[in-house]
Design a protein around this nucleic acid. Structure first.
Lengths: 338, 338
DNA sequence: GCGCGGCTCTATAACGTTATACAGGTGATG
DNA sequence: CATCACCTGTATAACGTTATAGAGCCGCGC
């Protein structure tokens, strides 16, 4: 049997409204009656019907986290953090899988889906500034990752150019000169790829190294398979690279596999660096040097900002938050950290 | 502005109830009026308020998938499948992370959480038959994975004993004699570990090989780190194994890492097999032989069964469904499939 | 011509909650 | 002693939907 407010009210001999006030403290209740009501709640085991509450309040208590692929460990780790953070704030997080599909992202931005969620955390991949600005749905939106949008929404991300720059700088520091990049997008439609290429070029220039277009490999997607294929192509060049920087850890891990298959030693012949610090990279042979974003920070700030917007709480700080990152040196660049 | 049934009714010049009937076809509506209403819906862009609908219907349209860890790629892949299957059936799937915690699993089984979801798909880890039977919450429950429960709920899983047996059989077939198992639980509290050890012992016996307790390594959890540590311990034995079967792919991948660090060749010195067929295993060096469960089938059947129970539809077949699996031979056992 | 069944559509009462307006009682104040 | 403000608690109207009961209309059969 399901217990509702009316049952409690009868049991405690008070009105419906009083019970409601005890439950959510909207208005003060005398100490004696409060105790009687509380006792009735405990005895009957009441928990509010969220559907009804949400109908009345106009909110559902649900927020969505939309990511391009759950099977990318980076996003799985991020989701795990966001789920627990949301739960701590009294919200339930539902995952949306956009599959890096433009239509899916657009549908989320102003779709009917919105009727059920109070707010959306979106990791956009295929859409840009215009699409975000054209958004009609009223519920709060927080963007994570990717590029620079300059839109009236919170945006949490690392500085992609600086992160890429740091990775290349490290490769230069260990003496590499022919450094390749895997994971540029032909059409330039993934902003973060564009930014990471920019950091790559800036770092090369800063080190006085030439920019060789042949060493920049485009990929269709950003998984292990893409990295492996691109690495094979690079190895087929007359003068192959002595280092590779992957768009993310998955791509870099695919490159590791291609290098192993072709009999090249890592890092002696080719050094490899990725981005994301997924756990997998701590167990590859060799272990993978990577740029580690602060996933916990990203997940927490994104959820907190969103909830603050939903509840109309004051939010401190600028719209765009750049979260810190650091370089983790492992075997794939030959110089593991202590 | 948010459009509701009343707006549509006014616009189309019909009653509220008629619009509702057009929307969800509860009762027949004349062709002419249906068209007028449909046109109004299209023009004003109506989508139902799910909170209100759910309050009225007594259902929320939400189902939960509770798994021990989202960062295990096996579960991430499974979740991706379940999410899309649920969406296809008109349900929204929310993820619950039990973190392999007994209290969390119990709370899900009969907790207040239930008020918001219509049904639960649970991958139990720390609870057994009694706890499931003691469940008080009324909403449907579907179990996935793990052991044999014999409870009045649908249960989707592979035959763990047979799967384990098949893996060992393969190792025997390629000539291995000292076969270790990594991922037994000391207390025996994870049922599937128990079953996989049983399959291991049965296969050894069938091959006329002795059961050596020293070659069965327990682990705290079932991640890469656990596998790595256990493998190190096995290598420290006076007479190390010539093959290893991991509780899952993650454990096996940890073992691969330990073997590489210690300078052992795989598969020449030690062959390695896992279970789960996570994508990662197709890119390790060497690639990982594994038992591949049919994840798509598991995810689909679990969601469909649950939805059928929720909606009171007739369900064919027995409560316990054993989904198929197959052995994928890769480099870590030296005999890749064609 | 009248009654009756069948077909559309309408009016309305829930579902369980929260917020508003109001009522009753008490203590302080003029 | 009357008045007023305050504090607790109550009655009730929403929120947007669906399901039930019933009303109007038309055609058919006697």
């Amino acid at each position: 049997m399901v217990v509702n407010l009316k049952d409690i009210a009868q049991r405690a001999g008070v009105s419906l409204a009083t019970v409601s006030n005890v439950v959510n403290g909207y208005r003060p209740v005398g100490e004696r009656t409060r105790q009687r009501v509380q006792q009735a709640i405990d005895e009957l085991g009441y928990s509010p019907n969220l559907g009804a509450r949400h109908l009345r309040r106009g909110r559902t208590g649900l927020i969505a986290l939309a990511i391009p692929e759950l099977t990318n460990p980076y996003f799985a780790e991020l989701a795990e953090i966001a789920i627990s953070e949301a739960a701590a704030l009294g919200y339930t997080l539902v995952m949306e899988n956009t599959a890096a599909d433009r239509e899916a992202e657009l549908a989320l931005l102003d779709g009917s889906r919105q009727r059920i969620i109070d707010g959306l955390i979106l990791s956009p991949v295929r859409i840009g500034r215009e699409e975000v600005l054209a958004r009609t749905a009223g519920s709060p939106l927080v963007l994570i990752g990717e590029g620079v949008y300059d839109v009236p929404h919170d945006h949490i991300a690392i500085d992609n150019v600086a992160a890429s720059h740091a990775a290349i700088q490290h490769l230069v520091a260990i003496g590499r000169r022919r450094i390749a990049f895997i994971g540029a997008t032909p059409g330039g439609d993934r902003q973060s790829a564009h930014l990471r290429v920019r950091g790559y070029r800036e770092a090369l220039a800063a080190a006085g190294l030439p920019y060789r277009p042949l060493l920049v490999a485009g990929t269709e997607a950003f998984g292990r398979l893409d990295g492996m294929r691109a690495m094979r192509d690079l190895l087929a060049l007359g003068d192959p690279p002595d280092a590779v920087f992957g768009y993310n850890d998955l791509v870099a891990i695919g490159a590791l596999r291609a290098l192993a298959e072709a009999g090249h030693r890592v890092p002696e012949d080719v050094a490899v660096v990725g981005i994301d610090d997924i756990e997998e990279g701590r167990f590859t042979a060799p272990t993978l040097t990577t740029i580690a974003p602060d996933k916990r920070e990203i997940g927490r700030v994104a959820v907190r900002r969103l909830v603050a917007r939903i509840e109309g709480t004051e939010v401190a700080g600028p719209l765009t938050v750049q979260t810190p990152f650091r370089l983790l040196r492992r075997e794939s660049t030959g110089t593991p950290d202590a």
